[in-house]
């Protein structure tokens, strides 16, 4: 049965061949598409912040919100469902408003944290479309691992 899964901010979901995983309008957030091409299973995570360690009060922490918690959690879930030898494609991490203020540059910090979390799990990033100043919508097809990135000004790009 073909299912389209919509992944909101601070969420991740797993899909198999035939499914479509979609996350709309990534700004400074990053979409992480993790994929096992043999078993045709993959997960899409939409993280919004780099590091859960910045939170003093971790009671009720939403692990799907942070790169350093969401990525290993989704990886574990994929492994439990039989995935191995995974690769990854990432998109997002934009700077939506042109400013030199560091505090706004969460997009860049998110991308750095995503790369670090994936490297820790030894999942290679085989394609990426990150940074710059525009929003992105991501469609991920676990059938063949194709990731389509749509933006308002740059059209559709296939990763």
């Amino acid at each position: 049965m073909k299912t389209t899964y919509n992944i909101g901010i601070s969420d991740w979901k797993i899909g198999v061949a035939g499914d479509v995983l979609v996350t709309y309008a990534l700004g400074s957030c990053v979409g992480i598409c993790m994929y096992d091409k043999i078993h045709k299973i993959g997960g899409l995570s939409h993280i919004m912040l780099p590091d859960s360690n910045s939170i003093a009060d971790i009671s009720g922490l939403n692990r799907m919100k942070f790169a350093d918690t969401a990525i290993p959690d989704m990886y574990q879930k994929l492994v439990q469902q039989g995935a191995s030898n995974m690769t990854c494609k990432i998109a997002g991490g934009a700077l939506m408003f042109a400013t030199s203020s560091d505090k706004f540059n969460i997009g860049e910090r998110n991308v750095v944290a995503v790369r670090a979390a994936l490297s820790k799990l030894r999942v290679p990033i085989i394609a990426s479309d990150t940074g710059l100043n525009f929003g992105r919508t991501v469609f991920f097809y676990p059938e063949n691992g194709v990731v389509e990135v749509k933006s308002t000004t740059q059209g559709t790009k296939q990763l």
Partner: peptide, 19 residues
């Protein structure tokens, strides 16, 4: 800026949504 609503709103959400 002009862009997708969700992408624009990710700015306050990420800045103030930490806790």
């Amino acid at each position: 800026t002009a862009d997708m609503l969700g992408a624009v709103m990710s700015v306050p959400i990420t800045l103030f949504g930490e806790v």
